[in-house]
């Protein structure tokens, strides 16, 4: 009985849906505020994203007649399920994730791809030209960044010698953070570049380039379904940041300062916020690339960094 309750608590409240969406939306608000300041604007208040999503939730749900299919309606829900599941597999409060069943890095990589695939399906099934172009672009982008993303993870795996995220975090607790290992710095850079593509941020916001294809795959979505997409996107940001934090920054660590027990989740929040801010800064100092340029960039420069890191790990003792 306790196990069932605890499972529901984990998946719906902490660290699942409620926690993840609250923090994800807050990070999106911080991102918008920082962007505003970088652009010499005041920017919206940091709770703006809650208001936006709340408003979308209350709007009428319009499905275009060309898009009336199960795929179009279900895609955002599946994506939401996938990102929430990753949240359960990440070390959020301690090295131990909420779901302790056998689930290693490969499962996380798979699950992280499901929102992307749902986005494509939603775009293709929306029946509009912008959705199709956006989905087609996202396919190309997926093939660009995913290779680099996986290569960077392999570099970490080769260094630690385990496919288990808990083991990676435990290893770092004993031997120091992997970011301090110079051989893995190129892999970290490659990882952040591919995260930029995964999260569709400038210069890789090509699949949803506003001035070219309106909103890409999400053009035909409106109301609650669009709100769910926004939540998915923001949880995905948090999840990717948490994943990078677990791989390179030692994951959540609980501290005791002056008799006060500070829980690991505070550490998790600080580390993920730093990573989100790095991506925010990157997206504000560049122009958008074209899809062919993005592909070339990933398969040359970013892939080179990841391979370099892997080689260093394997060759240099």
């Amino acid at each position: 009985m306790m196990e069932v309750l605890s499972f529901f608590f984990n998946s719906l409240v902490f660290p699942g849906l409620l926690f993840a969406s609250l923090i994800g939306l807050l990070y999106a608000g911080i991102d918008r505020k920082v962007t505003g300041h970088m652009q010499h604007r005041i920017g919206p208040p940091i709770w703006q994203e809650y208001l936006d999503v709340g408003k979308l939730m209350g709007k009428e749900d319009i499905t275009p007649s060309a898009a009336q299919s199960l795929v179009f309606n279900v895609a955002p829900l599946i994506a939401l399920g996938a990102v929430t599941t990753v949240m359960l597999l990440l070390p959020v409060n301690s090295a131990q994730p909420a779901l302790t069943a056998v689930a290693d890095l490969i499962v996380i990589i798979y699950l992280l791809n499901i929102p992307a695939i749902c986005l494509m399906l939603g775009g293709y099934s929306s029946g509009g030209p912008f959705g199709s172009v956006g989905a087609a672009r996202y396919v190309v982008q997926l093939f660009s960044y995913e290779f680099v993303f996986i290569l960077a993870i392999i570099a970490v795996i080769a260094r630690v010698g385990s496919l288990d995220l808990t083991a990676v975090v435990g290893y770092q607790a004993q031997r120091g953070w992997l970011i301090l290992d110079l051989r893995l710095i190129p892999a970290l850079i490659a990882m952040i570049i591919s995260a930029q593509g995964k999260l569709m941020r400038v210069p890789f916001d090509i699949p949803e380039a506003e001035t070219e294809i309106v909103h890409g795959a999400l053009t035909e979505y409106s109301g609650p379904k669009l709100a769910i997409w926004r939540i998915v996107y923001n949880i995905e940001t948090l999840v990717v940041a948490g994943f990078i934090a677990a791989l390179f920054l030692g994951g959540p660590v609980a501290y005791t300062i002056g008799g006060f027990q500070i829980p690991g989740v505070a550490d998790f929040l600080i580390k993920t916020l730093i990573i989100v801010l790095i991506t925010t800064i990157l997206r504000n100092i560049m122009a958008r690339l074209r899809i062919d340029q993005a592909l070339k960039f990933y398969w040359t420069f970013a892939a080179f960094l990841a391979v370099l890191s892997l080689m260093l790990v394997l060759v240099v003792p």
């Binding site: 604007r41 400038v202 916001d205 506003e210 504000n284 958008r288």
Partner: peptide, 16 residues
Amino acid sequence: AAHQIGFNTLFMLAWR
């Protein structure tokens, strides 16, 4: 033009 190529920071600064 900066907005068209997704460079929103330049857009805001130029208009400032």
